[in-house]
């Protein structure tokens, strides 16, 4: 990002040191959720979503999901240009219904994980991840 000298001065003069990308939400995220759940209610227990509070770098953010007894879990980045991130389908030889991966986040946003349980019900967890502008070289 190119800053004019005026902007650099403003930053240096006590503006927030941590520069945070603007929060954004995407209506397409709701569509992705609706496709997965068919509009059903989602319980707020039964699924865990682990993500850092502040991402070291938005290009590679480690996240983990876990929902004992789930047949599938979807992961959504509500602030990304396209919100769908992944869908984990667990087979009979999965030892646990959990997985970790690394994702790209375009800016500060909520990420959402929804599990479909064996009995057909759904559970949802979300986490806010701050994505910052780095200091030097991005």
């Amino acid at each position: 990002m190119e800053f004019s000298r005026r902007e650099t001065l403003a930053l240096g003069l006590g503006a927030a040191v941590v520069t945070v990308m603007p929060f954004s939400v995407n209506a397409a995220a709701d569509d992705v959720i609706a496709t997965f759940t068919g509009g059903a209610d989602m319980a707020d227990t039964g699924i865990e979503l682990t993500a850092p509070e502040i991402a070291e770098n938005g290009n590679t953010v480690p996240v983990a999901v876990s929902a004992p007894g789930a047949s599938a879990i979807i992961l959504i980045a509500t602030g990304n240009p396209t919100p769908g991130v992944a869908q984990f389908n667990f087979g009979p030889l999965a030892a646990s219904q959990s997985a970790s991966t690394r994702i790209r986040l375009a800016g500060t946003q909520d990420i959402v994980a929804i599990a479909q349980m064996a009995d057909g019900s759904f559970a949802k967890a979300s986490a806010t991840v701050k994505v910052t502008i780095g200091g030097c070289g991005g």
């Binding site: 590679t60 983990a64 980045a77 769908g84 992944a86 087979g91 030889l93 959990s98 991966t101 690394r102």
Partner: peptide, 21 residues
């Protein structure tokens, strides 16, 4: 027999990493 079947979208980082049991 299936252990995991994962659909990936562009938001998965370069050099996709997946850990599971």
């Amino acid at each position: 027999q299936s252990v995991l079947d994962m659909a990936m979208e562009p938001a998965i980082s370069t050099n996709p990493y997946v850990q599971f049991e």
